[in-house]
Amino acid sequence: MKTKGKRFIQSAFLLLMTTLLVTNSARANDKVSYRLKWLRNVSVVGALYAETNGLFEKAGLDVQVKPGGPERDAIREIELGHADFGTASADQVLRARTKGSPVVVIAQLFQVNPLQWMYRPEDMKIDSLADLNGKTIGVTFGGNDETIMRTLLAEAGFNDRDVKLFSVRYDYTPFYQRQVQLWPVYRNAQGPIITAQLNKEGETTAFFNPADFGVKFVANSVVTHSRILAEKPELVQRFLDALLAGWEQALDSKNEKEVLAILQKYDPDTPTSIQEQQLKITRELIQPNPSIAIGAIDEKSWEQTQQIMYDQKLLPQKIDLKEILK
């Protein structure tokens, strides 16, 4: 009887331990989803690195990284509960907050906005904003580039007669045919591809960066629901730490070979030589200065972004940025 009782206690103990282990491991791998802003390419390389190298798992997270696209809106998905985290541009965040969305920013990925204008340096020189006078400039009407360009033109004191704004499409033919002199591109993603194409034709390229002329319009940031931040701050911190570690390691030149292999896996249509350049430029945009931590929120740039949007009547009122930037 004693032996039977002892066996029963041992079995019960074993069962309890197993249950505890299973429960603990399930708790350790909290399931969350992260909606990217764009497709899997160099602009999201930090998330790809963290995903491939199990950085999320190490932080006790089971993260489903979902590619974005033009029809995706991470903020809407977060509010509807389809995603826990996401990447959104500053203008999206500000528009959403003015309409009552409970979205908060937990990290700013790009310190320098990759949205810049490509031009041919043999045709023009841009030393000051006055050099834009008389030029045909490509913009996506309704897009961020229009907002940024209109701010620059207002700074220069130009009106619609001083420059010609050209509606930008998916194809670059008007730029290749020199119908348009400045064409908006994502400096790190499209920039190297078009530069390579023009180089083949013996042409050179340069980039007009609005930040060089004082316009710092914030680009992509990591966002979440204010309720998630309030109820699960520890989970948010674990996710953010893993993601930013992914960015840090992806941008470390020591890991370049591995990072290029990851990029090739997800974006096989872009040659490795181009991805090498894309990665180099992305490093400069994410961390232009080693003293600035990856993911740091540049409050002054957020203030300027809000002011620009308010001045252009894209926001009905200004909001307290302290409520958004966490």
Partner: peptide, 14 residues
């Protein structure tokens, strides 16, 4: 019913 903001679905007044 889901308490969504005007960003996700605009209010009738909007």
């Amino acid at each position: 019913s889901l308490h969504l903001s005007d960003y996700v679905i605009p209010a009738p007044s909007d």
